Simulated assay, not measured.
Amino acid sequence: MIVTLIIACEVGFWVLLAAGLALRYLAGMRRTSVVVLLCEPLLEVVLLVVTAVDLKNGAQPDWKHGLAAVYLGFSAAMGHYIVTRADAWVAYRFAGGPKPAGAPKGGGARTAYEWRMAGRFVFAGALAIALLQAAIWYVGGDGGTASLRMWQQRMVWVIGINLLIALSYTLFPKKAEEEKARPSLLDRLLKPASERSGAHTAEDRTLTRR
C-alpha cells in the first residue's frame, strides 16, 4: 500500500501542477490556481500520516517505509524549485514572459549554480535522514530498523556525491567560453516544441556540411 501511495502522490503532484498552471495561464483564474498548487503539500501529509499509522499498527519497518521517508524529503526540498521552473516555462510559452535562463555557461556563475543545486540535494538528503531517524525512534529498539538505516546510508552518499560535484566546479572552474549552457532535464521537457525542432534542424545542417 505504501508504494502505491507514493506513486499516487507523484502522479497527483504533476496533475495538480498542470491543473494549477492551466488555470493561471489558460483560464486566467490566478487565485484558483494558487489554491490548487497549495494542495500539493497535502499529498505529502497524507503519505506521512499513512506511513506513521502503518508503523503504529505493528508493521515491520522495511524498504517501503524508507522509500516513503526519502520521497517526502526530496518532495519538500525540490517541490518549490520544480513548481517555479515549470511556472517560468509556461509563462514564457503562453503569457509572453521572459525565457527562463538555463545553467550558466561557466565561471563563477556556474560554480554558484552548482552549489545551489548541491544545497537542494543536501537539504533533501538531510530531511530524509531526519525522517528516517524519527521512524527509527518511533519503532523503538525492539523493531527491525536495518532497512531504515540502510536508507540513511544511501542519503549520506547522495549528499557526499553532490558536494563533490559542486566542489569540483570550485577547484576546477570552467571558463564561460569553453562550456555551452546545458539546460536541465525539466527545462528540456518544458521547452516549446518549435525550439526543440529548431535545435535539431541546426544540428542536422551542421552534420550535413561536414
Rank of each mutant, 00 (worst) to 15 (best):
H80S: 02
R182D: 15
G144M: 05
A109F: 10
T208Q: 13
Y81N: 09
S147K: 03
V122Q: 06
L171C: 02
K191E: 13
I165S: 04
A146C: 00
N162F: 06
P98E: 10
V90K: 08
W137I: 07
G198N: 14
V139K: 11
A91C: 13
V156C: 04
A199H: 13
N162M: 10
F121H: 08
L190W: 08
S194H: 12
I129G: 08
D187Q: 06
E114V: 07
G198V: 12
P192W: 02
R149I: 08
F121W: 08
A91R: 13
P104R: 08
R93M: 00
L167W: 11
L163P: 06
P98N: 01
F121Q: 08
G107R: 08
T84L: 10
A124N: 05
A103V: 09
A135L: 11
R188H: 12
V139P: 07
E179V: 07
S194N: 11
F172M: 14
V122T: 14
R188K: 07
S147C: 00
I161D: 06
H200K: 15
T145S: 06
A77W: 00
T84V: 09
P98F: 06
P173Q: 00
G108H: 11
P104A: 02
S197N: 12
A109Y: 07
T170H: 07
L185W: 07
L171I: 03
A166I: 11
T145V: 05
A146K: 07
V158Y: 07
G108D: 10
L189A: 14
E177H: 00
M78D: 01
T170D: 04
A124G: 14
T111Y: 02
Y169A: 01
A109Q: 12
A103R: 15
V139A: 13
G107V: 05
P100K: 08
L164K: 01
T206Q: 06
H80Q: 04
W137N: 10
G140T: 05
F123R: 09
F172R: 15
L163T: 13
Y92I: 01
G102R: 09
Q153F: 09
A95S: 15
Q153G: 14
W151C: 01
H80L: 03
S197Y: 14
Y169V: 03
T201I: 07
K191D: 10
E179I: 00
D204W: 08
V122D: 01
E178Q: 14
G79Q: 11
I165N: 05
L132P: 03
T111A: 04
Q152R: 10
D142K: 15
A135D: 14
A166M: 11
L171T: 01
G96L: 12
I82W: 05
A199W: 12
S194A: 15
A193Y: 02
K105G: 03
L163C: 15
F121A: 03
R188Y: 09
A135F: 15
L171A: 01
K180I: 04
A109M: 04
A112N: 01
R205Y: 10
N162P: 01
I165T: 04
L189T: 14
D142S: 15
V139Q: 10
L167G: 04
Y138C: 03
K180V: 11
R188V: 03
A103N: 05
Q153L: 10
T84F: 08
K180C: 02
G198S: 14
